[in-house]
């Protein structure tokens, strides 16, 4: 193992502190006894208890989870199909345009996505609510799934598919029995990725939600405007925990898949 020099250690410490001290403080103060956010009054989990009493937060959390679950599932299906099309169909006419259109939401400012979807819903006279937030989330998280699937498919041996066809398996069954199980880790990590993206989205949800469809990030944002309370710290800690879990599982699944490829 290589030894780290003093400079490297300093760089790491400063870099990581910059990134994580705010989050560590937030988590720390969620266990604060005192009502004041900046004064440590001893360890307590009472704010988590209080959280359970807060109907507004519980409703928002439920909405968020519903939206995240449905949107990430649909985005995974669409994104997987898009990723497959990008890799399996060679250089079809309009491929560049197609890939550009798939990846555009990744670089498009969230405000623009939010605004344009809002305008569309208004123009179509769709009542805003859980449904519209879900649709908007599908739109922006699909491209991430497509990227994950496309990168997985670039190392996928097409003759495996051909071998299945050759052995008398229909194209559809081949997809279900062969292709899907092999790329399943990538599909799962794509799902986890879009789930976490949906979980912590504030901007797009603000544009596309309506009455009764306040998501947790929106709820937190509105509560903060009345002052930061330990309750917010507590709910944020839970959110951080969920997102971390999602990202870590996605990367573990991704790594295990890579090891499998190397072994094969």
């Amino acid at each position: 193992m290589k030894k780290f020099g003093n400079f490297n250690i300093a760089a790491l410490v400063i870099g990581f502190s910059f990134l994580y001290i705010p989050i560590i403080l937030l988590i720390l103060f969620s266990f604060n006894e005192s009502r004041l956010v900046t004064v440590w009054g001893g360890f307590s989990t009472k704010w988590y208890g209080e959280l359970m009493q807060n109907q507004g937060i519980k409703d928002a959390a439920w909405v968020t989870i519903k939206v995240a679950f449905v949107s990430s599932t649909v985005a995974t299906i669409l994104g997987t199909i898009a990723g497959l099309v990008m890799t399996r169909f060679g250089n079809f006419r309009g491929r560049t345009l197609f890939s550009g259109m798939i990846y555009a939401p990744m670089v498009m400012p969230e405000v623009i996505i939010g605004l344009s979807t809002l305008l569309m819903f208004v123009a179509l006279a769709v009542d805003r609510g859980v449904f519209t937030v879900t649709l908007a989330h599908i739109t922006f998280s699909m491209c991430y799934v497509a990227v994950v699937i496309q990168s997985r498919m670039s190392s996928y041996d097409d003759s495996i598919t051909e071998a299945a066809l050759d052995l008398g398996c229909t194209p559809f069954r081949t997809f279900i029995l062969i292709t899907l199980p092999i790329i399943l880790p990538a599909v799962i990590s794509g799902w986890l990725l879009s789930f976490t993206l949906s979980l912590d989205d504030l901007v797009i949800a603000s544009f596309t939600s309506g009455p009764g469809s306040t998501t947790l990030p929106m709820k937190i944002y509105s509560m903060v405007r009345l002052g930061v309370t330990p309750e917010i710290n507590a709910v944020s800690t839970i959110l951080v925990g969920l997102v971390t879990l999602g990202v870590i599982s996605a990367s573990i699944i991704g790594r295990r898949q890579k090891q499998n490829i190397i072994k094969v």
Partner: peptide, 14 residues
């Protein structure tokens, strides 16, 4: 009614 053996063997890894 023809089968093929692939250069990469193309075994199903799972």
């Amino acid at each position: 009614p023809i089968n093929m053996m692939f250069q990469s063997y193309a075994l199903f890894p799972h």
